[in-house]
Amino acid sequence: MKCQQCEKPATIHITEITGPELDELHLCEDCGKIYLSQQEPASDSTMSPQFKLIEDADELAALQQQVCEICGSSFYEFRHSGRLGCPHDYVCFETELEPLIVNIHAATDHVGKRPKRGVNSSEQQVVLVRMRQEMKEAIEREDYETASSLRDQIQELEEQRKPS
């Protein structure tokens, strides 16, 4: 049997009893882990299930709107597929991902091997994203001088980032 969210074989079988009907889920290990780590108990146990549902719907709508500047993926898409869209998603969805990562790994910080070069790449990428955003805003308010200076800086940074 295939996982309902990706192509891997389903190894985790979950029966959810939330409403009048039983929901059966067949997931692979990775998707299962993500699914289960999202099933955190509500912080306030007195909250009625309906209320929780509405809150979830609002949350979901908000999540759907938030999109990674680099790849255009939403967090909602990640929840659906179990796979992120690009390395920058880790920065863009940091707040949403953190509890999940803590649930899976019981840790927040990498210990171990580091690349000997290109270590700054993700930070650089964040800088680039911010500059692109600023450039867009400058264009919108017709501040072309700032925009063109930003454009040159972006180009320079991108040149540096190219692997030698």
Binding site: T108, D109, G118
Partner: peptide, 10 residues
Amino acid sequence: LSYAFHQRLG
């Protein structure tokens, strides 16, 4: 080549 790497997350 450069790997996707994050200072904190690895």
